[in-house]
Design a binder for these strands. Structure first.
Lengths: 213, 213
DNA sequence: TACAAATGTGAGTAATCCTCACATTTGCAA
DNA sequence: TTGCAAATGTGAGGATTACTCACATTTGTA
């Protein structure tokens, strides 16, 4: 079995893969590299993160870094991928048990709060998703993530409104999800007070649409 | 009189200004530089745009380029600034005559179509606003632009709903505007057909909120 | 005509991503 | 245990590119 190597992107496509760590030693080292990158991004942002600094802080040589990551973006991509995997499970769980409008209201409201809290608390995630637009591979990862999350929402809507046009529900869910991310990004880039108001307004708008009142 | 020089950003603040072109000759050369940059961004994206290439295509030396633009981002910023100035006038005009709900529906609907058309037709604008998040100065320009545009919308809402809480109207207008830009960005990054559906769905959602039905 | 300010030039500097030829360690079959 | 191929580790150096600077030329004007 050939575990897929940590990969990144050259111009949007998945790029030259690197060796996947197969020994315990190297797996630990890759973890250290990711941890170092994460710390540096939290401190200075991914743009200012220097590959040499990542290697130094992880206690490995620059060559080792490139043994497992084809380029700088691949490290950021790997971190982003962990976040999406983690949060998707959380979202699926939150929306799985929704069976009526009141459930949906409660679950969606909680979800927005959790997401907003994450955006506020996680400088790394914030930085990565902010820079998302500049990097094609990241943009695609986010898009895929958004689609996956929107699908959970679509499933709920189909349950609640079985007579509605399925394609319209998909579009609505996708749009609402994507707008939520936009609203969060906006909210964290203005002051805390205005940010809270914006998130609350988004929540109200989205719920009005989801519940179709 | 000391015309403000073309400026850019170092780390979010306005950066070391360069000389403003005061002679006819240099003003024409600056125009050529901007035109060259614009063409290169349209062809390859702002990330792949090389300063040397801009200079060459404009028929000036690299030194001349840096005489008027403190850094690469300043060129992009200058192009972005032209777009915002242009479109703000257009938006203000479209919303100025709105006096009732039906006016608003028509004007907003047209505005969205025009914006969407611009996003589809202008590769430079699209590229610049896509990369927006990565650059602090651009992010701030976009935010300021959004606020300005949202204010036109706020003014309309205050006219239509004088008894509503003004702060709430401001938040609504700002959010709707920002979400519109997010919806456009999303729409152009998926296929044309799905994009059209997303824009239509956004328009419907936004109008429902604006008209508060 | 003189001369200061504005403008123009491009070889060179600095920063940084990434490669590559070679060294070392590990897993495993004989 | 020993031999050896595969995996892993290294860091000097190549390549690219944004940006500088010392100096040359042009322009406005007194």
């Amino acid at each position: 079995m050939e575990g897929s190597a940590v990969s990144g992107s050259q111009d949007g496509q998945i790029a030259s893969p690197r060796r996947a760590p197969s020994q315990q030693r190297s797996r630990e080292r890759v973890e250290r590299m990711l941890a170092a990158a994460s710390a540096l991004i939290a401190e200075q942002g991914s743009d200012a993160m220097r590959m040499g600094e990542v290697a130094e802080r992880a206690g490995v040589s620059i060559g080792s870094l490139y043994q497992f990551f084809p380029d700088k973006r691949a490290i950021i991509w790997a971190l982003a991928e962990r976040y999406t995997t983690e949060s998707q499970a959380c979202i699926a769980a939150a929306l799985a048990g929704v069976n009526d409008a009141e459930d949906l209201r409660r679950a969606f409201s909680e979800l927005v709060d959790i997401y907003y809290g994450m955006f506020l608390a996680e400088p790394v995630m914030r930085d990565i998703w902010s820079g998302t637009q500049a990097d094609k591979a990241l943009r695609e990862l986010e898009l895929a993530d958004s689609r996956a999350n929107a699908e959970f929402l679509t499933a709920v809507l189909k349950r609640l409104r079985p007579s509605a046009d399925p394609e319209a529900l998909e579009t609505t869910a996708f749009l609402i999800w994507q707008m939520g991310e936009a609203a969060m990004r906006l909210a964290i880039s203005v002051g805390r007070q205005e940010g809270d108001r914006l998130v609350a307004a988004y929540k109200r708008m989205a719920l009005r649409e989801l519940l179709d009142r």
